[in-house]
């Protein structure tokens, strides 16, 4: 009885030491989890998650304050990636946060109507709007994340959301259509 206890204790201590040594010796420096989460988020900075930008949302997720399903621009793919990263189950998008848009939109300014009030410039989270007071503003299309934060401040409603122009260079092959006979379900 005594021998067994001692042996087991010694073994426990030995393995504890080995594990402790391994933990130090083979330590992997990884990005802080906030940065990893932030890297997954689409960086539209739209605030639909109710946090003022993607990084604050990432912080909230890592603190356990926010759920992973509050990012409409990222959609299902982002939720899946977050779930994989954090080891939790993916869940459907929180309808409170908004809906997934079928295609990527960017803002354009109707330059005839714009009065040059600079309110949209102040609202843009990525400085994608150019212009000065009393001068027509314009949006750098390539920098626009489509967050729509510039829409509410505009006093004359001169900002429109339009689909991103498709270019042959950036065109994507669609997923192959399953033809009859393939085990894809539904088609009896």
């Amino acid at each position: 009885m005594f021998t067994a206890t001692v042996t087991l204790s010694l073994l426990a201590i030995l393995f504890g030491l080995i594990l402790g040594y391994a933990a130090v010796r083979f330590k992997i420096d990884s990005d802080p989890v906030v940065d990893q989460i932030d890297a997954i988020l689409p960086q539209t900075q739209c605030g639909q998650c109710s946090y003022p930008g993607c990084h604050p949302y990432a912080e909230a997720i890592s603190n356990g304050e926010a759920d992973i399903n509050r990012c409409p621009p990222g959609g299902e793919a982002t939720i899946q990636a977050l779930a994989d990263l954090l080891g939790v189950d993916p869940k459907p998008l929180d309808p409170e946060a908004g809906e997934v848009k079928p295609e990527k939109l960017v803002a354009i300014i109707d330059e005839q109507t714009c009065i040059g009030c600079t309110l949209c410039i102040q609202a843009c989270p990525v400085d994608a709007i150019l212009g000065a007071a009393k001068q027509m503003h314009t949006i750098i299309e390539s920098e626009c994340t489509g967050c729509e934060l510039c829409l509410p401040p505009c006093p004359v409603d001169c900002i429109l959301m339009v689909p991103v122009k498709q270019s042959a260079n950036h065109w994507k092959w669609p997923f192959p259509q399953p033809s009859a006979g393939l085990n894809e379900g539904g088609n009896l």
Binding site: A180, G181, N183, G185, G186, N187, L188
Partner: peptide, 8 residues
Amino acid sequence: LRRRPIKS
């Protein structure tokens, strides 16, 4: 039962 094409 699986609602898959039977014939093929």
